[in-house]
Design a protein around this nucleic acid. Structure first.
Length: 370
DNA sequence: AACTCGGGGCC
DNA sequence: GGCCCAGAGTT
């Protein structure tokens, strides 16, 4: 009886992984995994959430910082949400940080502080979807779950020359991955597929001659592997315009406020500004000013979001803040809940990158080292 | 099924 | 300048 081809391919991949795996902070080594050891579910979960649509390089430092601040899921559950948002600032997709906190609370409240070990229960937790549930089940609990992310989609679509375009092809691809997943070391298999996609089976100019699947790859046989996976054409990004206002007082403090909890940059900190609209001129009229001050234009900053591009006209004003009383809140607009933040502590705020860009345009030394 | 949600690196 | 990245939640 000859072995299943799938088993052969998985064995080839695991052999490749043993030789070429990357040493990452949230991983245990393949030798340990072969002895049946698994990584800490808290570490696996934290890394997988951070890695959603985010590169390994960007995640490393944040992962270490979070572990130092909150060593266990219980610590994170007990943390101040605002501190979590500050620690997450710069990593993007801020709903992940809000859901991270909610998930930690749910694990403590509903599961006694231990992550559940089944896909279904994991997927019921905030911020854990198809991919992350499968990844945690496989990597932290040795379950034979089908792990399908962007890397695996590329690998599996090339291996089988899947003609169906994404995202419609996902169920088909998940089934193919499930068939390929071995009984032993399913966690290493999943990570090996992702490593292969990240280092060999790359979007452009894949290194097919180094690939453990080179003898089995349908795309390599019949077509150009680079043309997989097939994808539906995406629509273009519109341009939005707006104005942002950097007020600096006589104590070198900048006026900040908090954005609404939901929506774009939800729960993060910002400088005052206009709505971001599609009008060609942008709204930089007096009506747009957050409060009366000698506003002076100091240039524009551009920033690209997932579904639109933003061009912000930045204005700066030096204001003298009256210390006491109603007039003191002062220069600030009535009915808003902003605050004055000293330049020294600006870096520690929950400021998204676009806001840092705008502040730096108005105050070039705002984020200077030291 | 289509949108909304960041930011950075690479080509 | 476009594409991609260990995707999830909402509508």
């Amino acid at each position: 009886m000859t072995p299943e081809p799938a088993t052969d391919a998985a064995a080839l991949l695991l052999g490749w992984y043993d030789r070429h795996h990357r040493d990452l902070p949230w991983r245990i080594s393949p030798p340990m995994a072969r002895k049946g050891a698994v990584a800490d579910p808290y570490h696996v979960w934290l890394s997988e959430v951070m890695l959603q649509q985010t590169t390994v390089k960007a995640v490393k430092a944040y992962f270490q910082k979070f572990l130092a601040l909150w060593p266990t899921v219980g610590d994170l559950a007990a943390a101040d949400t605002e501190d979590v948002m500050k620690a997450w600032a710069g990593l993007g997709y801020y709903a992940r940080a809000r859901n991270l906190k909610k998930c930690a609370e749910a694990v403590v409240r509903d599961h006694g502080g231990r992550f559940p070990d089944r896909e279904e229960e994991l997927k019921a937790l905030p911020g854990i979807g198809d991919y992350t549930a499968a990844a945690i089940a496989a990597i932290a609990f040795n379950r034979r779950s089908a792990v399908l992310d962007g890397n695996v989609e590329r690998v599996i679509s090339r291996l089988h020359a899947v003609e169906t375009p994404l995202p419609a092809a996902k169920p088909e691809m998940r089934a193919l991955v499930h068939t390929l997943t071995p009984l032993g070391r399913p966690g290493d298999f999943a990570q090996a597929m992702m490593d292969l996609g990240a280092t060999i089976c790359t979007p452009k100019r894949p290194a097919c001659s180094l690939c453990p699947f080179r003898a089995d790859c349908r795309a390599l046989k019949i077509a150009d592997p680079e043309t997989f996976p097939r994808k539906a054409p995406r629509k273009e990004k519109p341009l939005r315009l707006g104005a942002a206002f950097v007020a600096i007082d006589d104590c070198e403090a900048v006026y900040l406020r908090k954005r609404p909890e939901t929506g774009l940059l939800g729960g993060m900190t910002e400088i005052p500004g206009t709505e971001w609209t599609s009008r060609r001129d942008g709204d930089t009229s007096v009506d747009a000013h957050p409060f009366p001050a000698p506003w002076e234009p100091c240039g524009t900053v551009s920033h690209v979001f997932t579904h639109f591009e933003l061009r912000l006209s930045v204005f700066r004003a030096s204001v003298v803040r009256v210390s006491e009383g109603g007039a003191g809140a002062g220069a600030a607009p009535a009915g808003t809940s902003g605050w004055w933040e000293p330049l020294d502590s600006l870096k520690a705020q929950a400021l998204p990158t676009v806001m840092k860009k705008a502040i730096a345009k108005a105050i070039p030394h705002a984020f200077a080292a030291g």
